[in-house]
């Protein structure tokens, strides 16, 4: 249990850093989605099923869709 938790936390920090590191918005959004999935696994490991369900649905599902539609709108304008 503890080993799995440590692996998940390391992967969580890794995906958060990668989401900040990349300049491409699409890759950042995909890493945020991975972040939410790992966080869901951590919540489930700590027996918080309600929060895990909310995180999976909102973080991995809805946020990704809304961010995708947002970047598809800002892609048309020229940015630095």
């Amino acid at each position: 249990m503890a080993v799995l938790e440590i692996i998940l936390v390391i992967f969580l920090v890794f995906s958060a850093l990668m989401a900040v590191y990349f300049d491409e918005e699409l890759i950042s959004i995909i890493f945020l989605s991975i972040f939410s999935l790992v966080l869901t696994a951590l919540y489930l490991l700590h027996k918080a099923a309600d929060v895990a369900l909310a995180e999976a649905v909102i973080g991995a599902g809805l946020n990704t869709a809304i961010f995708m539609s947002a970047i598809s709108q800002i892609r048309h304008g020229d940015s630095d």
């Binding site: 099923a49 309600d50 649905v57 599902g61 809805l62 869709a65």
Partner: peptide, 25 residues
């Protein structure tokens, strides 16, 4: 299911509502 079984199993109105919004998406 998640909405109507909110008082019996994990879940509730908020989570189930977001799942329903996913259908529209």
């Amino acid at each position: 299911y998640v909405i109507t079984h909110g008082h019996l199993t994990p879940g509730g109105g908020f989570q189930g509502g977001v799942i329903l919004a996913a259908i529209s998406i």
